Amino acid sequence: MKVRILVRLKPGVLDPQGRAVHHALDSLGFDGVEDVRIGRLIEMDVADDTSDAALTRMCEQLLANMVIEDFAFEKLENSKETA
């Protein structure tokens, strides 16, 4: 089974990469962009019986810095979808 995990900075945590992208978009003439936050997407192939609890532990112990980041995951069961 494929799992997608989105890790992003918690609200209120400074995002210098997001600010740089926001500034670049503004300087390129893209009006109306009010904020940019940068995160990362992790895709994993795991055994079909991998539990949500196990995925949560993976995120909490390794994949996300729980002090400054949040995470969410989705299971793509029976999907051949790739990014």
Results as ranks from 00 to 15, higher is better:
2 K>D: 02
2 K>E: 06
3 V>R: 05
9 L>Q: 09
13 V>L: 13
13 V>T: 13
14 L>F: 13
16 P>K: 11
16 P>W: 12
16 P>S: 15
16 P>G: 13
18 G>N: 03
18 G>I: 02
18 G>M: 00
19 R>F: 04
19 R>I: 03
20 A>T: 15
21 V>T: 08
21 V>L: 14
23 H>W: 03
24 A>C: 11
24 A>R: 08
26 D>M: 01
30 F>N: 01
31 D>E: 14
32 G>H: 09
33 V>H: 01
34 E>T: 11
34 E>I: 11
35 D>F: 11
39 G>Y: 03
39 G>N: 08
40 R>Y: 05
44 M>P: 08
44 M>S: 10
46 V>K: 05
48 D>C: 00
49 D>I: 00
49 D>Q: 10
49 D>E: 13
50 T>N: 04
52 D>T: 02
52 D>Y: 03
53 A>N: 07
54 A>H: 10
54 A>I: 05
55 L>A: 03
56 T>M: 03
56 T>N: 08
57 R>M: 13
57 R>K: 15
58 M>W: 15
58 M>E: 11
59 C>I: 10
62 L>T: 13
64 A>E: 06
66 M>C: 04
66 M>T: 14
68 I>Y: 12
69 E>Q: 08
73 F>I: 04
73 F>M: 06
74 E>V: 14
76 L>K: 07
78 N>Y: 00
79 S>T: 12
81 E>L: 12
82 T>C: 01
82 T>N: 15
